[in-house]
Amino acid sequence: MNTERGVVYGVIGLVLATTLVSGPLVGVVDFTTAPERASFDGGDATVTDVSLPSSTEITSGRFGSGENYVLVPDATLTVANVTGTPLLAYQFSIPALGYSRSTTHFVTAADTGAYGLSLERDAIEPSRVESRSYDGSVTVFLRSNESERRLAERNVTVEVTG
């Protein structure tokens, strides 16, 4: 009986003590460390072999969800000579629809080699899609120390399917 009581009070005491120790009053340790967010603080990289998709698609949603989805295949490239954390951006736009979407990737030395940039499936209102196909463009940017460079750009056909 007393052991049981001891165990319970032990755990409660430990929990409370840890909580107090974490506080500014005692301030011995800080248990909560903010995660390091990748941030753009300059850097550069050599990017070669940029390969962009040749066609993209607007397809109707599955499972009765009704809305349309914009599908953009991945872009691939090769990264070398990384210094700091430069930034890679992958952008897709359909000017006729006023549609634009992009992702950004922070590149570090660990990313040296083949690298893929992807855009997630994105919902688009069906009533906005009226033609069978649209002209769109995919672009890859590199933001380094000095400037933002357009590494590659390609005009693509957007097929409306389904």
Binding site: T18, T19, L20, S22, G23, P24, L25, D30, F31, T32
Partner: peptide
């Protein structure tokens, strides 16, 4: 918050 870290 005066005595402890709120997350904890």
């Amino acid at each position: 918050e005066l005595v402890a870290d709120l997350r904890i």
